[in-house]
Structures are given as structure tokens and as C-alpha cells.
Design a protein around this nucleic acid. Sequence first.
DNA 1: AACCTCCCCAACCGCCCACAA
DNA 2: GTTGTGGGCGGTTGGGGAGGT
Length: 361
Amino acid sequence: MGRHSYCIKQKLRKGLWSPEEDEKLFNYIAKFGVGCWSSVPKEAGLQRCGKSCRLRWINYLRPDLKRGMFSLQEEDLILSLHQVLGNRWAQIATQLPGRTDNEIKNFWNSCLKKKLMKQGIDPTTHKPLIRDQAARVVKDDENLKKCTHNILYQGFSSTTSTLASMGPTFLMCDSNTNSYDGGQNFMNNIIKPGFDPLMSYFEFQTGIDQSMNDQYVDQNQMGMHSSFGFTSMPSLTNSDHGGTEYSDNNSASRISSFLLNHEVKEGSSNSSNISTTYQAAAGFQMSNSMENVAFSSWDSDNKMDPLLQFQLNAIKSDGLKTCSWEEGQLHTQNSVDFSSYPLTSLSEDLTEENFDVFHQI
DNA sequence: AACCTCCCCAACCGCCCACAA
DNA sequence: GTTGTGGGCGGTTGGGGAGGT
């Protein structure tokens, strides 16, 4: 197959684009618009392949690009969408105006992924890294059926090892059998061209808000021993931004707050009457007394999983030093100071006089 | 100052799909 | 149905800046 033959036939430039090349490409697109990329290099006088030109335009030269650091809302939205869409960066990018899939992908790989890992969340599955020993899907019907896409709430396992770490994980269930199918039904039937995950979230949120009031606060729902409720905990992203609370009622924020942050209170099943608050998913809060409890209620046979022990030790030695909710917000050693996040290097030339086209726009 | 290490991010690569001939 | 081509996408790379020694 003569795949991208234009690139192969000719000796073309590779690597970083010079300001001159940028100017040529920008002027050409501004004048003739986006059409056949394969002809762009020739027409614009560039020694690049069309594919490279396309990429340069999309990721860098497009005037509607939003530059600079990601906002908290954007970060939250990326987290939320990634939980549903996975590495479908292009689809995620459609929900973030002015952001490119490449930019989001880079942001994810360089920042968000690590942040989740640090907080004990598998960035791929958005589930806790601690092995889920006995997680089971709790099929609740009434309120959750309000959710547009039959996103069911995964009940917490009665084993506290799960409780300690897992936030509610949404499983996509077959609407007919009400059984978890690994998300296949969801992905096959819901994620389609035209599917708007954001709107789905809005719809979902509508159902959830009601569900939360009606149901989740009820400790006996979901077939679990422990009670849990929802708090106004700072979200994952909030935590790394100094615990700033959202007050703008931003949907994306609320969505991801719901997805990622839950407070799980244990105690009803604990004869020692010790009520320990777990800050699930958004971080581990395990008070010192937690250890002293010796995990007496951690599972039915009071044995702790070795892996769990290992991870708790890790948390104790690392997480608790770096991650504390004691004062109502999370502090991490490696918290990202977004105010110092580097802006893209580009802008300089594009806003300068040498890009006459910009003045026309 | 020189060297080393880390890691961000722009760009490339390879694969897939759609479509036309 | 086959082939050629272009476009889109996700994974990966490596240049280079920043910070540390």
C-alpha cells in the first residue's frame, strides 16, 4: 500500500516547526481554509507532508485553541470523561472547547495519571489499586433506573479493605438483565457517533441528585453493612489546588466530585464502636487509631489481605505523610502548582506582528 | 561551569477506516 | 472485491528546558 506516499516520495522536513513554516501554513489555511491536506504543503510552499501540516494546524496554529494551563473544571471533566471513555482522547477533546486530543493526552500522561496513582487509584480503571477482594455489584433498581444509561452503582464490599479505598465505581449494566457485562453493552450501545458523554452526565446527574437524597444516605441500602453518605469533600482536583471548594455549581465539578469523592463511614458493623472515616478514592484518610483498630472489621474472617497490608504500609509510610485530610484538605508533596504550569511555547510568535493574518482575524 | 537526571510536550509513527476509482 | 489515497486516532518518542549535584 502506498500509504502516505507523499511523505515517502520526497525528502521532507521533520521535527519542530520553524516560525516561518508556521506562518506559511497559517497564512495558507487562513486564505484557503482547510481542505485537502495532501495538497497543502505544495500549495503553501512547505517541505512537510500533509499529515504533518494537519497536525500542526490542529494542535498548534488553530486560532480557536485555548492555551495555557487546564482549569480545575477542565481537569475534573477530563477525569470524569476518562472514567467513561477511557483513552478516547478525541472524544474527550470534543467536550473541552479549545483543547486538542494531543494536549489532553499529554496532560493526562504527565499529570493526571500520576496524581491518580499517588492517590491509590488505577488511572486505567479508575478503581482503587488495592485489590478488590469481594466487590460485588449491588443491583438497586428504583432510583438508579432513573439514570439514563443504566449506570449502576457498585456497592461497597462488606470487606473493609474495599471500603477503605474504593469510591463508588460505576458499572455499565445490561438494561435487560441488569447484570454487569464489563461495560460492553454500554460501550457498544451507548457510545455511538453523536453520543454526548457530557449530556449523558447531565442526565445522569439529574437522576443521581435525587437518588442521593432518596437513597444513598440510607445506610441499609445497597446491601452493605456500612453506612455511607456524600459530603462536600473537595474533589480530587480540588485537593491539589489547595482544597478550593467549588461554589459555582459547575456540573462537571459536581459530576466528578460525585464520581471520585465519597466519604464512607464505617462503624455500624464494628463492635468497637470506632467510627473511622474513610475518604474514599480522593485520598486515604486513615487515622492512627485506624491501625490500632487492627482492622477488626475488615472482613468476615478478620484476616487482612497481604497485599492490602503491603499497601497500607505504603500508605502509612508515604501516603499519610504526603496526603492528609486532617485539616479538611489534601496536601501532597508533589502537588502541582498550576499557577506555575508552563504555557505553551507558541503564543509568542502568533501574536506578534509577523503574523499579519492574525490582525485580520 | 559542567554534567547529569528528570520529564514535559510537540511531533512522529503505525494502524484503522472511509471512500473513490 | 481490490487497490490507492487521505484523514483520524492513540501510542510512543526524543529534544530540550529545568532543576539538582
